[in-house]
């Protein structure tokens, strides 16, 4: 097991390097403009050249790349072109809202998706099964931001149960915090719940056709026990592996939802930076989410190997 973990950990090194190279290359295309973003229009050519020197833009590309990767691993994500603050200090206050919504969203989608999938698998091809399938198609077809509009309009404008906009920190009390993230979390959990429902259902239907299930039934076990104790254990394995992907998906999925609900999270930081062409912020967020994705992915693979001893690569 340890050898397996070590091998998988080493295998991420080239991917991380490539991801860094790709995002560096992308920003390299923009680097010419970076000077244009900061400098006054009246600046002379000499001033522009001095700024390029100061930003290290005149060094060879490989030197710039090495310096950037080095800084990244020391935790230095660069400086905003516009506000001149370090990107890390701009990011840290925005972590809490995004993670709060993603966390509640994950919990809600597991609580909604998995039972729906189990319900559908209880009687395959029944009316209930079709209803769940229909919900899941609707769930991943509905645009999150449209759903967010509808939710806002219904529950904040027409029936003022939830605050219309903004975020209340957990340090100001758990209840106001929950109130401010409930609507966004419900909205982002719909599409993920739809995926969970479908995966659970497919997994269950597949597992229920296996021989050991027939044995369990032949022993005279109650259908409930067969489903939940015997089948679900094996059917949940593919669901666990996607959980990682989906959690990362939720974190990035909050981007657009944060804009609708005007929540000051990472997504809002990203969108503002994209519109202002504040490249260091865009670059840092892009690189960070890719790193999170790679390691969450690795973690789920390791969990997968733990959960299913048959799997060893």
């Amino acid at each position: 097991m340890q050898a397996y973990i070590l091998r998988r950990l080493l295998a991420t090194v080239p991917i991380v390097f490539l991801v860094g190279a790709l995002s560096f290359f992308l920003m390299q295309i923009a680097a010419g403009d970076a000077v244009g973003v900061i400098i006054d229009e009246e600046a002379t050519l000499e001033q522009e050249e001095a700024l390029r020197d100061a930003l290290g833009l005149n060094d060879p590309v490989l030197v710039q790349f090495a310096r950037w990767m080095g800084n990244l691993f020391r935790g230095d994500l660069g400086t905003s072109l516009i506000s001149r603050y370090p990107v890390t200090s701009l990011m840290s206050p925005r972590l809490e809202p995004t993670l709060s919504i993603a966390f509640l969203g994950t919990v809600l989608s597991v609580l909604l998706g998995i039972p729906l999938g189990l319900l559908a698998a209880w009687r395959p091809n029944s009316g209930l099964d079709r209803a769940v399938l229909f919900f899941s198609v609707i769930g991943f077809s509905v645009p999150g931001f449209w759903l967010a509009f509808l939710a806002l309009w219904t529950f904040a404008v027409k029936l003022p149960i939830f605050p219309v906009l903004g975020y209340t920190s957990i340090s100001e009390g758990v209840l106001p915090w929950l109130r401010s993230i409930t609507l966004p979390a419900i909205v982002i959990s719909v599409s993920t719940a739809a995926v969970f429902a479908r995966m659970t259902r497919t997994g269950m239907v597949e597992v229920l056709q296996q021989d050991y299930i027939r044995t369990a039934r032949a022993k005279g076990l109650a259908e409930r026990v067969v489903h939940f104790r015997h089948a679900f254990k094996n059917a949940s394995i593919p669901v666990i592996t996607t959980l990682g992907f989906l959690v990362v998906g939720l974190v990035t999925g909050t981007t657009i939802i944060e804009i609708v609900f005007t929540i000051p999270g990472l997504g809002r930081l990203l969108v503002t930076a994209v519109v202002d062409r504040d490249y260091p912020i865009v670059h840092a967020l892009l690189m960070l989410t890719a790193l999170v994705y790679i390691y969450v992915n690795l973690l789920t693979d390791i969990l997968y190997a733990y959960a299913d001893p048959r799997i060893r690569y």
Partner: peptide, 16 residues
């Protein structure tokens, strides 16, 4: 490596 970037994030960065 390309697939490690979340769709909307990469799209936003490229648009920037």
């Amino acid at each position: 490596a390309m697939m490690a970037f979340p769709t909307l994030m990469l799209a936003l960065a490229m648009i920037a």
